[in-house]
Simulated scan of single mutants.
Amino acid sequence: MFKRLCSTALIFGAAALAPPLAAQAQGVACLPRDALVERLESRYKESLAGGGLQSPQQMIEVWASPEAGSFTVFITRPNGVGCVVATGRHWTGATIANAEGVAG
């Protein structure tokens, strides 16, 4: 009985510590932000296209390459680790209209 209880506790404990299933399925890559940025700049020729605070604990960044058309979205945590949440192709940048030129 004690062996079953310990085995069950180990199995459920290991499952609780595993990354979320969505992260496993999408192959979320987490690296120190500096290493991630270096890879995006050197390998994919991407540069910062925009971003902002998603919450006090997370900053979201979008990096893109207008020439190659690729883009990467990642979240950086306060500990300096960045996790890629999306990548894609056919990037098109958008321009924000100048608020001073809008009649209202």
Rank of each mutant, 00 (worst) to 15 (best):
T92A: 10
G52D: 11
V85M: 14
A64Q: 08
A29W: 09
C6Y: 10
L10G: 02
P78M: 12
T87L: 01
R33H: 12
Q57F: 13
F71L: 07
N79G: 08
E38V: 02
T92S: 14
S55P: 09
E100G: 04
Q24V: 06
A16G: 11
L53H: 11
Y44K: 01
A18E: 12
C6K: 07
A86L: 03
T76H: 10
W63P: 04
C83T: 06
E67F: 00
K3E: 10
V84R: 07
A49R: 04
S55A: 13
A18Y: 10
V85Y: 03
A22V: 01
H90D: 14
G88F: 01
G51A: 10
G104R: 15
Y44M: 00
P20I: 00
P78G: 11
G101L: 11
M59K: 11
S55T: 15
V85Q: 14
R89N: 03
A99R: 14
A14W: 01
P66M: 02
A9W: 05
A15G: 10
G101Y: 08
I11L: 15
L10E: 12
M1D: 11
G88I: 01
L36H: 02
S65W: 03
E61H: 12
R43Y: 04
I75S: 12
G52M: 11
E38K: 08
V62Y: 12
W63R: 11
S47E: 09
T76R: 05
L48T: 03
C30W: 09
S47C: 03
V85H: 02
P56Y: 12
A94S: 13
V102G: 05
M59A: 14
F12H: 08
P19E: 06
Q24K: 05
P56S: 09
C6H: 06
V62D: 11
G27H: 07
I75N: 13
A23Y: 04
S70G: 01
A35R: 07
M59R: 13
N98T: 06
G52R: 11
G50L: 09
V73A: 02
A86Q: 14
F12W: 15
L36G: 05
N98Q: 10
Q54T: 00
Q26W: 03
V85W: 04
A35G: 08
I60L: 15
V81F: 06
V84S: 05
V62C: 11
I60E: 14
A9V: 09
A97Y: 07
D34Q: 13
S65M: 06
A103H: 04
T95G: 13
G80K: 05
I11G: 07
F71T: 01
E46L: 00
A64N: 07
K45L: 11
A29K: 06
F12G: 05
L5E: 12
G52N: 15
T8V: 10
E46V: 00
L31H: 02
A29V: 08
T87W: 03
A49S: 13
L21C: 05
R4H: 13
L48M: 11
A14D: 08
L40F: 02
L10F: 12
K45A: 13
R89Q: 05
V85R: 10
L5Y: 05
W91L: 02
Q57V: 01
R89G: 01
V73L: 15
Y44S: 02
S55H: 09
G51Q: 09
M1N: 08
E100T: 06
T87N: 06
A14L: 15
S42N: 04
Q57G: 15
F71K: 05
